[in-house]
Design a protein around this nucleic acid. Structure first.
Lengths: 238, 238
DNA sequence: CGACCACTTGAAAGAGGTCAAGAAACGTGG
DNA sequence: CCACGTTTCTTGACCTCTTTCAAGTGGTCG
């Protein structure tokens, strides 16, 4: 039983409406929301915002995939995390310092829903339950980080790569008979960042994963051969 | 120029008063705060709360050191992070699910200031700026996690251990002439968790750090020989 | 004294990092 | 469509670091 979509609510038609941070906005705030609301389509490689830029809005990923990356002073950069559909991006700088600590860039063609800072502030101010949902997202981000620290301490690189691929497959893979296939939205180098290894090691991890028999790779293409893993993906989607 | 301490405010005499999350409480809320407020002294090894327990309060570390640890289903546990004086503990479960995801235990004799959940809720509800400060702590926690991920990706285990020791020395070390000394509040095994290596490796890291010349160790005792590192600690304290 | 715990040490194996070279994929301009 | 240069990815060789398992040390406490 999901809550019926409100036709006047900007998020009303979104697949994530019932979980949207803006969903609890009072009728009076819905008009403010509608005024500050906009949708945009990002192509692969397009920036949503840049590191060190001032926060202008709160962004919600409606479709696609966003990569959050930090640039170091030495010119290199590290992909820190992925934002999947339904997740909020930029709320850290919305709530905090006001400047983005990371760059946000589309890794897949993406649809982003934006609420400009000024209006977002008003809505949050007038609707405590919107603020509560924003805080839930904060807590979720903290939980994600903790899980990642624990995973790094307790599982092998190969296991973590496998888990990441399953997650991506669950979101973006296509079922083909009793197997799944997908075009990877990340470079090997970005995968390496997420797992915490060097690019050369990622090449070797991929090969080892293929030798184990559950995955096949060809460039950016990935196939999962039928078996227990296929069921895991289906379970993830339910 | 720090704000003058309010003698009726429970945190008024605390060294961290001006940064306290409760500092902006309105006079009307200060009495609620005083009613729900209590101080407790924890001995080394004493629990502040257990994992999976229900959140009963928001805790502030006034003195000492608290270790946050998760227990895994296989019986092992991992020290996730340290909470230094001035930091808030348990706010994740206060804001979120209501159950503690970690165990909090004193690693040094500690003074903890507690505001029971019910009153904390009232104060947060009545004082938006208290809520704002709580959110700042959330954002700070997210930033800490990001920094840790970046540090893991870009620095060696030895470097991270050195940084951790300097941090501890800045908080708990004693200046002895032109060097610093400290009794480590953590076991080798806990140090290993924080750095992300096995206990045996930690033993070897410690030895290598000693061979490099800046640190001396004897059991739980640590000395920092004068030099650039000494200045770093002093800079940290300012 | 003996049991227990934390810590250290050694040896062997494995995994990952680094450097350098080569292969494959991609985009651009002719 | 091909040729070209660039970037990304892969591979090999070598070396360092970490893990693992096992044994040994030292201290603490009943």
């Amino acid at each position: 039983m999901t809550k019926n979509a409100d036709p006047t609510h900007p998020c009303g038609k979104c697949a994530f409406y019932s979980d949207s941070v803006w969903q609890p906005a009072e009728p009076g705030s819905v008009s403010v929301l509608a005024a500050g609301f906009s949708r945009q389509e990002l192509e692969v490689g397009q920036d949503l915002f840049e590191q060190d830029a001032e926060n202008r809005a709160v962004y919600c990923v409606s479709r696609g995939l966003i990569g959050l990356r930090t640039h170091h002073s030495n010119g290199k950069s590290t992909l820190l995390r992925l934002a999947y559909p339904g997740e909020i991006v930029g709320f850290r700088s919305f709530l905090g310092s006001g400047r983005h600590q990371t760059e946000a860039r589309a890794l897949l063609p993406s649809r982003i829903c934006t609420v400009v800072r000024r209006d977002a502030n008003r809505i949050v101010h007038d609707n405590p339950s919107v603020l509560a949902r924003l805080m839930d997202r904060c807590v979720a981000e903290i939980d994600r980080s903790h899980e990642r620290i624990i995973a790094t301490a307790t599982t092998s690189n190969k296991q973590r790569l496998s888990a990441l691929l399953l997650r991506l497959m669950g979101h973006f893979g296509e079922q083909d008979g009793d197997s799944f296939e997908m075009r990877l939205p990340l470079s090997r180098s970005d995968l390496a960042d997420l797992i915490g290894v060097q690019p050369e090691t990622m090449s070797r991890l991929v090969k080892r994963l293929q030798n184990d028999g559950n995955f096949s790779f060809s460039g950016r293409g990935v196939w999962i051969t039928p078996g227990r893993l296929t069921e895991e993906i289906l379970a993830r989607r339910s």
